[in-house]
Design a binder for these strands. Structure first.
Lengths: 153, 153
DNA sequence: GTGGCTGCAAATGATTTGCAGCTCT
DNA sequence: AGAGCTGCAAATCATTTGCAGCCAC
């Protein structure tokens, strides 16, 4: 984890930004909650536990900065808030999401499933792809089990 | 177009809603701008041309209603606003989008490119897919031409 | 001592809501 | 007269911005 912070620090420096204590605290929260899909408010509350003086605006500014540097991706699942998701280090493309319409859980798919699809799009639509967003909405495995338990009771 | 309005009217009725003049005006605007990706404000301004008494809140309420009935899909391209996109009649799945990061244009792909990918997700992640969102970000064909023109000048 | 960075409070902008009035039956 | 629907204005919520102070080099 320290190594990862160091690398993010270098990324900041090479874009002439500093890793201030507030920024570091924010990054640490993101690293500690890599599996989650935190909103700015969520991040703010978590950072506040460790660094109570931090302001919400600073968190927003830091998240914006990290988005710009492609350390995180800003995503939107259709509720009113933006969520921030750490990129896998070195990942060429953004991972995909499975959003459960019953329980709201969000799972990640790290595999790149779109290789073939992207070739088709680049060729047939003459579109030079830089990034993508793919989200499936449906029923997660947990809810499928839960549902079949209930119906058999 | 009249047929389509009739069918939407039936959909509303079967969910015990009425096709009021304001709702009809809103639906007509959506049909006339099927290619576009209008925000609520955009729709409001266009409806206002024909029916100046309409209120913005009514447009929001109508768009919400149409989303619930799956007549339109609410989408979000990462700018702060929701956009509303008519579903193709009878389409099992939502179409895909190509967002140009240079000019902002949004093109649609109606083909279902995800058939194989969905099979993999359903099987390997045990996820029952109900819908999806796929958006590519990159350079559209128009900007690619424009860019190469400029560099050869 | 200057520029980057911060916290706070105020501003903004999209969307939602409360409510009184209207419409159609 | 009742239910559904509307327009308006006010409220709400996420996010952004202005600004004075602070900190590190």
């Amino acid at each position: 984890m320290e190594g990862r912070i160091d690398r993010i620090k270098k990324q900041l420096h090479s874009a002439s930004y500093k890793l201030t204590p507030q920024r570091e605290a924010t990054v640490r929260v993101l690293l500690e909650h890599e599996e989650d899909h935190l909103s700015a408010e969520d991040v703010y509350l978590l950072v506040k536990d460790k660094s109570p003086e931090i302001g919400l605006a600073t968190v927003y500014r830091t998240l914006e900065l990290l988005t710009e540097l492609k350390v995180v991706d800003k995503i939107n699942f259709g509720d009113g808030v933006s969520r921030y998701d750490l990129r896998q280090e070195g990942a060429a493309h953004f991972h995909h999401h499975l959003v459960c319409i019953e329980c709201g859980a969000v799972d990640e798919i790290q595999d790149d499933l779109l290789g073939d699809v992207e070739k088709v799009v680049e060729k047939d639509w003459n579109f030079k792809i830089k990034d993508h967003r793919l989200t499936f909405h449906g029923i997660c495995w947990r809810c499928q089990e839960k549902d079949s338990d209930e119906s058999s009771e």
